[in-house]
């Protein structure tokens, strides 16, 4: 479980997060909506252990991120907006390299299975990543997290720049991961995608969680209106 309690974080005079409280349970996908600078990436970076909160606690599966950062990171799969892989390596070589860094030595077949599960077409497995589209790189990024047996997936604008087909595939994959028990936190601008994929939605504004709701309780249009209302006030 992701647990964020009374967390505040500021950069010099700029208050990035104010008294944030969040929980994401096993098998649940939480979407964080917000404009640029709302605090979405700061929240993810605190969960990753790269930023220390000024106050409050951040924990994953009851392990405090700043007491045992390595232990926390072992459980996290992180997919940034742009998964920048090594362009001179093939998809399978990238996956193999990142797995080996995590101490995981998979066979070629196993690596191919991970890529296939994550939606990368088999003919692309042995192509150099320099020729990949953004969506294909995202899939390898997810495969890296998946192969790591991550319990927690943190996604920072994962669908940004993806074509509708790739975006749809990503949604399916995230739902599949959640159904397998993954804990997923996804930061995004994409209201419709968040509404479609996530179980719960949080709206962040100027570092404050202004609204939290279940996606089943709102339609996409209602959510958009709600979001715009919060942003404009």
């Amino acid at each position: 479980m992701i647990h964020i309690q009374d967390v505040s974080k500021s950069f010099k005079d700029n208050l990035a997060i104010q008294n944030l409280n969040l929980e994401v349970k096993k098998g649940e996908i939480l979407g964080l909506l917000g404009a640029n600078g709302a605090g979405k990436s700061t929240t993810i970076n605190m969960l990753l252990g790269f930023l220390k909160p000024d106050s409050g606690t951040v924990s994953i599966n009851e392990i405090d991120t700043f007491k045992n950062v390595q232990g926390v990171r072992e459980q996290i799969g992180y997919i940034p907006e742009n998964v920048n892989l090594y362009p001179y390596l093939t998809g399978i070589e990238n996956l193999d390299y990142f797995c080996r860094l995590a101490g995981l030595n998979y066979s070629k077949d196993e690596l191919q299975d991970f890529l296939t599960v994550c939606g990368l077409q088999s003919e692309a497995h042995h192509q150099r990543v320099s020729g990949y589209s953004k969506g294909m790189r995202q899939k390898v990024g997810i495969a890296i997290a998946y192969a790591k047996n991550a319990e927690v997936y943190l996604l920072d604008e994962p669908a940004s720049g993806l074509d509708p087909l790739a975006s749809n595939e990503l949604s399916k994959l995230l739902k599949k991961l959640a159904s397998e028990g993954a804990i997923i936190l996804m930061a995004s601008h994409d209201i419709f995608r968040v509404r479609e994929v996530c179980h719960r939605i949080g709206i962040l504004k100027n570092g404050i969680l202004v609204k939290e709701l279940h996606s089943k309780d709102v339609s996409a249009n209602e959510l958009e209106n709600l979001y715009l209302e919060f942003m404009q006030n």
Binding site: P80, N82, N84, Y86, L101
Partner: peptide
């Protein structure tokens, strides 16, 4: 490129 984050998250 943001890979440093990924490398560190993978345990390096």
């Amino acid at each position: 490129s943001g890979r440093l984050k990924l490398l560190i998250l993978q345990g390096a």
